[in-house]
């Protein structure tokens, strides 16, 4: 059953990847305003080959968060990113639900 349940084992997957010698970053929702798809504290673990587990939204911003996480693996520095309402016509990254969220992206170091 453990394989089925990996959707909730974000930190465990991050630790496992790290122990296997991969570079890993974490993204965490730290604040939300209005209607946000995932509550504060929700996490995403990102591996250096762009494989990820968990979520920080309903799938709206994960693509961008993964890109920013891969950048953070290069710089080695944490970053806080704010996402707002998306403009579907402009193909902008954002939240279709009309909420706003702040996400902390951090590389696992050492």
């Amino acid at each position: 059953m453990s394989e089925t349940l990996n959707h909730d084992r974000v930190l465990e997957e991050a630790a496992r990847w790290q122990a296997e010698g991969r570079k890993v970053a974490l993204a965490t929702v730290i604040e939300t305003w209005g209607s946000a798809p995932r509550p504060v504290g929700s996490q995403l673990a990102i591996r250096d080959d762009a494989i990820f587990v968990g979520s920080v939204s309903g799938g709206c911003i994960e693509g961008d968060v993964v890109t920013r996480a891969l950048d953070a693996l290069q710089t080695g520095k944490p970053e806080i990113i704010e996402y707002g309402v998306s403009d579907a016509m402009a193909w902008e990254v954002g939240l279709a639900c009309g909420g706003r969220i702040r996400v902390m992206v951090e590389p696992v170091t050492g």
């Binding site: 930190l11 991050a14 630790a15 790290q18 974490l26 951090e106 696992v108 170091t109 050492g110």
Partner: peptide
């Protein structure tokens, strides 16, 4: 996050 914190 430092790896030892993640592991703990």
């Amino acid at each position: 996050m430092e790896a030892p914190i993640l592991q703990q």
